[in-house]
Structures are given as structure tokens and as C-alpha cells.
Design a protein around this nucleic acid. Structure first.
Lengths: 341, 341
DNA sequence: TAACATTCCGAAATCGTTTTCGTGTTTATA
DNA sequence: TATAAACACGAAAACGATTTCGGAATGTTA
């Protein structure tokens, strides 16, 4: 690669000092019009652009936001990144994305790489393994130094920083209420293992609705899926039983789509024999048969909100208290819970 | 944010020079064991990490790869990023992602931001608008300076740089052959407008197969979808006609899934009345009813390949000629083109 | 005891920029 | 004509690190 042109080279070209060149390019009145013009013409010709590393070092500001997510091939997370990216760009920031791959070790390594000067702040969704180990010292280190940090979706309430979450409890509550309204009595919950906070919260909303509607909780209807094992086989055990549930609330789209597929394999009629609703991650729901009802999550808004909180923090426009923003959900009712008239 | 500790601060703490501290932390034999130990203990206690901006400036190397994609909420592109990220991480690089949003102007602005020293090289998939305007001066500027650059998927053959593409012609060829084999006679093509190179190439494979199989090309069966308008309405015009085609090859998953949905609305039996196959972008195909046959694209491999080419270029391990790698596709036959026995 | 080697450390350059503070020259003013 | 103001520019510090080179203080050898 050809070395880019620098102030130094321009200066030596005209036999002037670096400061003169710098000032000339900024139209400083300190430099005569004649000198200014010839320097600017030369710089223009060689397409001079200030080296951003040098600027970042001098200004002690990178205008880069680091993002660490558990997965990138994931509709919800990529939607959040989209929100972050768009807001960041609007505010003159760039985005550096790292993937923890649900691994604690990779998350820590990402922390180390990003927080050594290359970014002004960090937006993180916690890796599964980190939640499982309950090991947050890398976060605490940052927090101790007041490093700008925003957590989203997979958060930990004990960490002193800004947070953005989906209204998981409310979403599951609304969805369960909807199932009750259409007449479901035995509503199964397909959730994650307990250490995944969002799974736990959605379970909470489910239970809250059952209680409110006077339905007794049947622990046998609560299935905790282990994401590291075969999904299909686990969900099969929910539906291929002698007395299957008459409704399913799934905490994500994949669980819901699989449940729907398996229910059809058992020749169950949807929604008459079994109604199904999930939390939306993606595009699947629209194209299943019948299309799936969903709790819509608004990842884009979440990303924007996270970026906004972070940038305010970076630019110190926040009154010190930490904020926890809740992005509300809404129900998108499709035919998997609503028989056509 | 608390300022991070620097060599300077450590030096003044012990009344030694900065060079001494730097050497001590690197276990240089030039420094006495006594001095080394106390400096290292102190640095360790205050969690000293060298500022990466300073290192990047000095070493004239950022170990960051810039990626510019048209869209991020897109299964194929996020899969490619995943491949890039994983390979890059393995080689000690980080990834900075920017989104052009299919806009020429944003693509140019991303170029400007990324190529001023903040990245060692660039991986790009060209924005739709750029292809439409046929305006490549921003690329040519980089190429003139031998800036490491790799194009993927949406490429331009006139640009002198490394490239990675899907075997679009071959994929469409295989898919069309498959349709012919199962007995389809009137095979419609759902493609993009011509300036999208991948659409054009897939059309080429489609035509090639028809010719080889002695089927006359019917221009009325080639539909060029305009992505800026309503998809559903455009695809409806393919199927809600007096004599609909008996097979459809769609150049992406969304077109295919919509076609399938609309065919069912017209009560066509799939695959008996109409067989449907698409190019895979995502997860939809597995969950439609019937599941969609697909040309599998291997975005992850593509990302890895692109990152490998770029890093070799950066580290000058490439013999000067530019490479064009082709990632081959394969067919995943599901029930939308294959009646169950 | 003279010469040389070893040990331990510091000064300074370098990466590329911005910015403050001089300083020398010219021009305007009293 | 002496003095002040205006003009045009340069030196140097700063951001935070690495590295080459040089040098003082010891220790070793002939």
C-alpha cells in the first residue's frame, strides 16, 4: 500500500513548517492567502486527509462505539445492531462489532481488545456462558473506572450501568392473556433454562397471567429447552404425548416454528387443537402455515435507545443516575391463534 | 471516565524514565530484576494495558478490518460477517462494520471514514445505488493507492482487486436443471433488475439450462422484481394469471417464500401444480409448508474466504495478481419441488 | 593499574496531528 | 523617526507507546 500523504511531506515540499500546513488547511488567518492557496491546492491534488489515528490519540476520543453480541446470525441481534448503527452514524460515531459466540472467554477477550483505547464506549448483550457462570468481574472493572457502558436484552441487574430491555414480563403476560381469551386451558410454556434472564422473565409474565386468570399452574407444562441439545427432539416431547396442551407460548421464534411444524406432523389442527404464539426474532412467522402469532420485540428501537444512552454517557450529557429503559412489546395476531371466520 | 494509567504515570511514580518502564514491562534484561518486579507489580495492580491507539500509530497498523455491506438485517450478509469475524479473530484482527443502506452516498462516506487510517483493509459488497449509477471512483481511488480491498457477492469485474463470489450461474443452472428433471415445462424466473449483478448472473444460469434442455425461452416468464416497490403485489402478477407457470426459480428466499404463499392462496398444489425453488438467505425455507427447496449459498465460507484474501493482501503474502474466488453452491431439495412418495 | 566488559538506565526519535506561544519582519501611527 | 500594531510563520509540547543509541557506574581481566 502506498503511504498516505502527511502534513510533514507537504511541509517539506514547500519548505515550510508542519504547523503552517496544518493552519493553512484549516483556513487560518495566520497564514497568508498566497501560502494557503498553494498548500491547499497541493493537498487537494494529493487527496490529503488527516490521519484519524493521530487525531484520535490527540483528542482522546475515537468516536467509535464497541458492540459485543452473543451471535450475529440472528435476526433480533442484527436488528439491534442496525438500530445502533443508524443512531451512531447520525451522531458521528462508528460501530465496531465483536461476537462473543456465547462464550465467557471470548467475551472477556473482546472486552480487553475494545477497552484499551479503541472505543469510547461499549454496548453489550451478555453471553450465555457468562450468565451461567455468573462471573461479572470484567464488567465490574469497567464500571469502577466509569467506562461508558450500556447493557441490552441480556442484562444483569446488579451491574451499575445503563440498561435497555424488552418488556419481557409484559409481553409474555399479554400473550398468555390472549391465549386464555381464545379459550385455551392447558397452556404450555416453551422457555429457556433459568439462567437466561429473558427466559426467566417471560416465564414470570406467563405465571402472572395464569394467576390473574385463575388458572392453576401445571409445572409439567413448563418445558425448559436446552439450547445446546437437539431442539426438534426436545419439542417433540411436548407435543407427542397422550394429552398434548391446547396452546403453546414459546419464548422465541425458532421454538414456536418448530412447535408448529411438529404439531402439524401430529396432524393437530392449528389453532383449533393447539394454538401457538412466540416471541418474534425474524421473518419465519409470516411464512409458516398458518402464519404464527407473535410478540413483536422492536429490536431496532432497542438499538437506537442503547446507542442514545451510550452517547449521552460518553458526552456526559446524563445526570449521573443510571437508567433502565424498557422497550414495550405488542402482539401481532396471526392465524396460529385465531381461527379464520 | 477515569483516565487510564500510562507509562508516564508509572515512570513518575518510581522516578524512572518512560523507557525503563516500557522495558521492564516487557521483561527486558536491560532492567534489573528488582526494578522490573516493582514496576510490574505496580502496573498489574493498576491494571495497566498499553493504549492501542498509540501502538497503532507507531506501528502503522491497526489490525482492524473494515466491512461495508448494503444491509445488516439480512441473513446472508450477517452470515458473511460471521465468517469474516471468525477468521479475522483467529488472525488477530478486529472487525468494524458499516452499513451503506444501499445508498451510494453512504457508501462513499463509509469509505472516507474507514480509509483514513482506522483500518488496514476493506471488505465491501457494493450498494444497489452504486451499481445503478455505475459510479466507482471511490473504489478506483483506493485501488490507485494499492489499498487492500476485497469485494464480495456484489462485485464489479472492472475493478482491479480480489473478489469472492457465489457461483451464481452454476447455482441457477443446477436449480433449473432440477426443475426440468421433475418435469417442469414452463419455468418462471423471479429475478432482480438487471443492474444487480447477482440477479443478472442467475438469469444467465437459468437461460443456460433452458438452452441445454432444449426448452424455448419465454421472455414473458422472466419477471424483474423492483425491490423498492411492494413485493407481494408484484409476485401476485406472476401467479394470479390465467395460465400460471408450472415452476418458479426465485433468486432469493423472500421472493420464493412469497411465491409459495401466493400459490397457496390460489389453491395451487405444491409441487404438483407449481414447483418452487429459491436461493437461500435464511431460515424461512425450513418452516414453510411445504418446506422450500433451495440453492444453498454458504455465506460463512464466503466471509472466511474474503477475510483470508484480505489479510494475505495486508500482510503481503499474495503474489501480486488479483484473485477471484468462486464459492460453489449446492441444492437442498425439499418438498416444494419433490412430491412425497 | 590500565583496559575492557557488563549492568542498568535515560535521552530522543518516531508515528501524525493540533495548538499555544514566540519571534522576526513589515506596515501604520504618533 | 521612534514605537506600536499587524502580519506571517516556526518551535515545541502534547497524546502514549517502542526502540535505538549512548553513557555512567560497576566488575573483571591481563
Amino acid at each position: 500500500m502506498k503511504p498516505r500523504i502527511t502534513l510533514k511531506k507537504i511541509a517539506s515540499e514547500f519548505g515550510v513548517s508542519i504547523s503552517t500546513v496544518s493552519k493553512a488547511l484549516k483556513d487560518s488567518h495566520e497564514i497568508s492567502e498566497e501560502t494557503r492557496d498553494k498548500i491547499k491546492a497541493f493537498a487537494d491534488f494529493y487527496n490529503y486527509k488527516p490521519n484519524s489515528l493521530a487525531l484520535q490519540l490527540r483528542n482522546q476520543k475515537t468516536s467509535v462505539i464497541g458492540v459485543i453480541i452473543p451471535e450475529i446470525v440472528h435476526h433480533f441481534f442484527s436488528t439491534v445492531i442496525d438500530g445502533i448503527e443508524q443512531y451512531a452514524t447520525k451522531k458521528g460515531y462508528n460501530v465496531m462489532v465483536c461476537v462473543s459466540n456465547e462464550s465467557y472467554e471470548k467475551e472477556v477477550s473482546n472486552f480487553n481488545v475494545l477497552t484499551n483505547g479503541s472505543v469510547d464506549g461499549l454496548i453489550v448483550s451478555i453471553a450465555r456462558e457468562t450468565q451461567q457462570k455468573n462471573e461479572y468481574t470484567h464488567f465490574e472493572g469497567l464500571i469502577k473506572d466509569d467506562f461508558p457502558l450500556v447493557l441490552f436484552d441480556r442484562i444483569n441487574d446488579n451491574l451499575a450501568c445503563d440498561k435497555v430491555i424488552i418488556d419481557d414480563v409484559g409481553g409474555a403476560y399479554k400473550a398468555t392473556n390472549h391465549l386464555v381469551e381464545i379459550g385455551s386451558k392447558r397452556i404450555a410454556l416453551l422457555t429457556t433454562q433459568d439462567f437466561i434472564t429473558v427466559g426467566a422473565l417471560r416465564k414470570e409474565g406467563y405465571l402472572k397471567s395464569l394467576r390473574k386468570n385463575g388458572i392453576e399452574v401445571d409445572e409439567n407444562l413448563i418445558y425448559k429447552i436446552d439450547d445446546s441439545k437437539d431442539l426438534y427432539e426436545q419439542i417433540k416431547k411436548v407435543i407427542f404425548v397422550t394429552n398434548p396442551p391446547d396452546a403453546i407460548l414459546a419464548v422465541n421464534e425458532i421454538y414456536a416454528a418448530n412447535a408448529l411444524k411438529i404439531a402439524k406432523e401430529r396432524k393437530l389442527s392449528i389453532p383449533n387443537d393447539i394454538a401457538i404464539i412466540g416471541f418474534t426474532d425474524g421473518l419465519i412467522s409470516e411464512f409458516t402455515y398458518p402464519p404464527l402469532s407473535e410478540v413483536v420485540q422492536h429490536g431496532f428501537a432497542m438499538g437506537q435507545q442503547a446507542a442514545e444512552l451510550l452517547i449521552k454517557r460518553i458526552e456526559q450529557k446524563t445526570e449521573s443516575g443510571f437508567k433502565k429503559e424498557v422497550i414495550s412489546t405488542n402482539l401481532k395476531i396471526r392465524r396460529s391463534t385465531l381461527a379464520p371466520n
